[in-house]
Amino acid sequence: MAAICTYWISTTLLSLLYLSSAFLYVTKRDFVRQAQADLGYHAAHLVTFMIVIKILGPIAILSRVSVPLSDLAYAGIFYHLLLSGMAHLGVRKPKGAIPAAIGLALLAASFATQNAARDMPSPYAPAAADHHLPLTTRN
């Protein structure tokens, strides 16, 4: 039961982090472009691409229409958060890496507990901790 609660809480918070970030990208486009330029990214199409990714990633995980697609979304989010945090640390702005660190913690909790909460298990997630072998009695 705890694993199921952990899954849904962490997945919901991760999704809210990504969807609120997508909302920021849509509403404060110039601010986001300048922030990315400060990190060394000067690609004009990057903002639009990230809006799409930040919406589709959580949808793939929450809807789970396909386990491989969900696992791919987990991997994509993992690399995005890792690279985002490293980009902020690389320009000596550690406060900017805090959302990425929080996201990585939420992602790890969600990924590790997904098989306990979902009917279709992921072959890559750790086995659910709720499955214990029965103890045998000695004669």
Rank of each mutant, 00 (worst) to 15 (best):
M1P: 15
I4T: 13
W8D: 06
W8F: 12
S10I: 04
S10A: 14
T11N: 11
T11K: 00
T12E: 12
L13N: 12
L13H: 05
L14S: 03
S15H: 08
S15A: 06
L19S: 02
S20E: 03
S21C: 05
A22H: 08
F23K: 06
Y25G: 04
Y25I: 10
Y25H: 13
Y25L: 10
K28V: 01
K28I: 00
K28H: 03
R29Y: 12
R29V: 02
D30H: 10
F31S: 04
R33N: 07
Q34S: 02
A37Q: 10
L39S: 02
G40A: 00
Y41M: 06
Y41P: 01
H42I: 05
A43S: 12
A43Q: 08
H45M: 07
L46T: 08
V47A: 09
T48R: 14
F49P: 01
M50I: 14
M50G: 00
I51R: 05
V52L: 15
K54F: 11
I55H: 04
L56F: 11
G57N: 08
P58D: 08
A60P: 07
L62K: 02
S63M: 14
S66L: 06
S66G: 15
V67F: 05
P68M: 14
P68T: 03
L72G: 09
L72V: 04
A73V: 01
A73C: 03
Y74L: 10
Y74S: 02
Y74H: 05
A75F: 15
A75Q: 10
G76M: 12
G76I: 08
G76K: 14
G76E: 05
F78T: 01
L82H: 09
L82R: 05
L83K: 07
G85H: 09
M86Y: 08
A87R: 10
A87T: 12
A87M: 06
H88K: 04
L89D: 11
K95I: 07
K95Y: 11
K95N: 06
A100L: 05
A100Q: 02
A101T: 11
I102W: 08
G103H: 01
L104Y: 01
L104G: 02
A105C: 07
L106I: 00
L107H: 08
S110L: 04
A112Y: 06
Q114I: 15
Q114H: 03
N115F: 00
A116Y: 11
A116D: 13
M120R: 15
P121Y: 11
P123N: 08
P126C: 03
A129L: 13
A129W: 15
D130W: 04
D130R: 15
H131S: 11
H131E: 10
L133H: 13
L133I: 12
L133K: 11
P134L: 13
P134M: 07
P134K: 04
N139V: 13
N139D: 15
